[in-house]
Design a protein around this nucleic acid. Structure first.
Lengths: 136, 136
DNA sequence: CAGGATCCCGCTAGATACTG
DNA sequence: CAGTATCTAGCGGGATCCTG
């Protein structure tokens, strides 16, 4: 069973490597379905504006309360946005991007640019591949 | 139940929007755990070289056969790499990045750069947040 | 209004075994 | 060597109900 043990160890080491890799962590963060959208909403298309919880909830049409809260918490935790509570009645909570959050949103712009330039090519390949499989 | 129905419809529309959004599709593709690593392996750190299945399997230490095959198939389908079968005994299969694949790998370089520049800041925020929660 | 707590389900990664 | 087939457990994520 030495081979199996070696494989198991290699896997653990590799998982550890992946867990520590900064770019892997970044991918894990931005690949979250709602993170991108929260960022986009708060960035206001180049004119960053704070938004309330209910405004975000309306802007991100399909999001559940659980996911919205969870996403906002994790972004606050990572210092990408700030959460401000105004003790009025009823209480008002606003979210606003930090400079770090804006920086990340700018990075997303680069992804968007690449996607708009190349994704149609990718999709064309995909269709061609599927069509060939259908014939073959 | 009209409210619930409206919510359900909003969700469907939003999911459709997400499914069609090119940048979302790009994120779904690159956020795959193994895609990044296959790309990196085949790019050879700036000196792109074709690799055999078994070579990839060894390079990506912890990957299962299923995941490796699945990843390679999807990347081939999207035109990011080519699969070449040499009918020797035993059969030899090599994988090589296309220009599109190289382009994507260059994009990953931008992500890497951002991550290396900012992820420590993110992680510092995270620790501070957790520490504050521990005290609160 | 802005969440917290719970239950639950589908998806998928991964281990195992087999094949041309 | 380069895969395919199958089975299963774990978990992300949504729906629902409840609260200050």
């Amino acid at each position: 069973m030495t081979a199996a043990q070696r494989r198991a160890q290699a896997k653990e080491e590799y998982d550890a490597f992946l867990a520590e890799c900064p770019s892997r962590q970044l991918l894990d963060r931005i690949s979250d379905k709602w993170v991108t959208l929260v960022l986009a909403a708060l960035s206001g298309e180049g004119d960053p504006r704070p938004l309330r919880y209910s405004e975000l909830s309306r802007t991100l049409a399909g999001v559940s309360q659980k996911m919205l809260t969870q996403t906002l918490r994790s972004l606050e935790r990572d210092g990408l946005l700030t959460r401000t509570v105004t003790p009025s009645v009823p209480v008002t909570v606003t979210y606003e991007l930090t400079e770090l959050g804006l920086s990340l949103h700018r990075l997303m712009g680069l992804l968007k640019a690449w996607a708009e330039e190349h994704m149609d090519e990718v999709l064309a390949h995909r269709e061609a591949y599927d069509a060939a499989a259908g014939r073959g």
